[in-house]
């Protein structure tokens, strides 16, 4: 992500320090992670101390300071999904992508994450990819769902 894009996002929010989280969210949304250079640029432009930005960026789980894949795969490991076989769904995804929860593959295609409940237990086991919920997953349907994402 280059400085021009970052500046554009900052200008959209009129360079106000109070819009810090909005700006971070937007960069996170476009870039999938927050590079240190981007944070430094924001710190300079908004006149917010770098420590504060660092504090906020590490506080919220929505932000990532390490590169994330284009597609964020969340697998629910809540009680309902767990007893309905979320472990097998997770194993399938791990096999297909070659990454463990919390990791990102080398092509920056997928990031895998375990969550504890997505709030739709009746659909369990649930897998969420880029915000789209896939319910009643089996290893076979998991494979099909993952293939749709490039």
């Amino acid at each position: 992500m280059d400085n021009a894009t970052i500046d554009q996002i900052i200008d959209k929010h009129h360079g106000e320090a109070s819009s810090l989280i909005q700006i971070l969210l937007e960069i996170q949304g476009q870039n999938h992670w927050l590079p240190k250079e981007a944070l430094e640029r924001i710190s300079e432009r908004l006149e917010v101390p770098f420590t504060r930005i660092q504090h906020i960026a590490t506080f919220y789980k929505a932000f990532s300071l390490v590169p994330k894949g284009r597609h964020e795969v969340h697998i629910c490991m809540g009680t309902a999904c767990h007893v309905r076989g979320a472990q097998r769904v997770l194993e399938t995804v791990e096999d297909l992508t070659g990454i463990k929860p919390g990791e990102t593959d080398l092509d920056l295609k997928y990031s895998l994450e375990i969550v504890n409940c997505l709030g739709c237990c009746a659909l369990g086991p649930v897998m969420e990819i880029d915000g789209t919920v896939h319910g009643n997953m089996t290893p076979a349907t998991t494979r099909d769902a993952l293939k749709k994402y490039e």
Binding site: F50, T51, H55, F59
Partner: peptide
Amino acid sequence: AEVKQKFAVGFVD
């Protein structure tokens, strides 16, 4: 932050 206003150290996580 308050006295020196250098912001060299902060909390993370």
